[in-house]
Design a protein around this nucleic acid. Sequence first.
DNA 1: CACTATTTGTCCGTATGTATG
DNA 2: TCATACATACGGACAAATAGT
Lengths: 259, 259
Amino acid sequence: MRAFQNEDRASLRPDHPSPLYHQLYALVKRKIEGGDLRQGALIPAEKDLAQFFGVSRITVKRALDDLESEGYLSRHRGRGTHVTYKYEPKVLRAPLDSMLDSLAVMGRETQVKLIDFARVAPPPYVVDGLRLLPDQWVDRALRVRSSDGLPFAHYTSWTVPIGPGLTQEALQSSSRLDLFRRLGVHLKDVDQVISAIAADTTLAQRLVVRAGDPLLQVTRISSDQRGRPIDYLVGVYRPDRFQYHMKLSASDVLVRGKR
Amino acid sequence: MRAFQNEDRASLRPDHPSPLYHQLYALVKRKIEGGDLRQGALIPAEKDLAQFFGVSRITVKRALDDLESEGYLSRHRGRGTHVTYKYEPKVLRAPLDSMLDSLAVMGRETQVKLIDFARVAPPPYVVDGLRLLPDQWVDRALRVRSSDGLPFAHYTSWTVPIGPGLTQEALQSSSRLDLFRRLGVHLKDVDQVISAIAADTTLAQRLVVRAGDPLLQVTRISSDQRGRPIDYLVGVYRPDRFQYHMKLSASDVLVRGKR
DNA sequence: CACTATTTGTCCGTATGTATG
DNA sequence: TCATACATACGGACAAATAGT
């Protein structure tokens, strides 16, 4: 019973609209996916779990049965319930302090698919972010990045018109960063905000997750040499396949933390 | 009915374990809190909503009644249902390249509450991260940080025993960073991973969100002068109240992006 | 081999919650 | 508001598989 702490007890709430068996299911699943319960680990007996969480054995059984049917557990009479899910955090990790959607950073093993490219009227927050005039149009690109054929990132980018170089054909064969460079646009300032959102049905479909699943979101506004914002990028990432990673050494911690 | 798109239709799933009235309740609440439905806006009639979402009128009524009782809506016979919730987005933004849980960075307007402090056997991923011996115990602290009385961050930290200075009393009066400093522990390297997770029931309760809501997660392993990891911190943040923010200038983009 | 304790599988009856028309 | 159907949750009882003595 060591894997289940006292704090887990309080997290099962009978008055909550979500059914008890599903709350317990989610709790155990998270412990498995998070690495608290690893392959081969023995789950306490239904009787013990029921007593510990103050629910009936049927409720525990339903939760564990659901996890078994999804391949997380294996259950046998007399033998008990064991974890079969193999925990291995296999995520791409990008250094945070660099241009994240460049192939050089990502490595060569990822592919980008252009979903849509069109000149559109930008939404209000893009108008604000890029400091556009009321009726100015921009080029919007929707892209999905995959690794080993599995999508892990969705980009929506709005770019102010910067000459004839940024076309659908060019985007399909080159990275945006390369295109910028070729067009003589050198990014000087990058303003970046990191947050989390729930997947809507569109994003869920494109990233092959369920609607409502948590996603990592990075909003980035890039400006050129003269400080004019030219690109507004919203990147959305599957947290199980992609995470941001950064190392800080002493000088960074002290100097950069001082401001 | 303009506020409710076709996408929303599919997000109500009868086969999902959570009851329909609660799924609808959550959907409308998110639209209100997200600013899609603002103060004064008229919600479509129960009959229309029921038809649109393919559920019974009673289900719609239950969802709207719950929102009314929480102060999001006002409902009157003959007048319809109107939004009373006042939308104002106010998020704290912390620079990413600094020690995020120090008061100096956060500003003085936040308060930390110590929920629990105990010497425990660490979970496997902490054993790995801190390179601990199999039976070594560590000090675990659970804390919640609030701004204006509203919680926005939850920290779980595991610290290797570093002398008698790290006690419950000390933690309640000083920041962990100050304590480290006083104990002669100088953090040299910080290894940081940013991701997103769904709130479990415990986190949901402590951060006053719903279970399943997306949260920003930062995992940080800090090491001392000799490169020995001494602290494993998992910070979880409400994305509507806290976001990471960073500015990169040209030299950063070029030099730091090169590695 | 039997015997026993443990653990999961299956079934019953009942009460409450959810959702429909 | 009512009747109906189904899902959830409980306590209890017994059967079947497994592991150890």
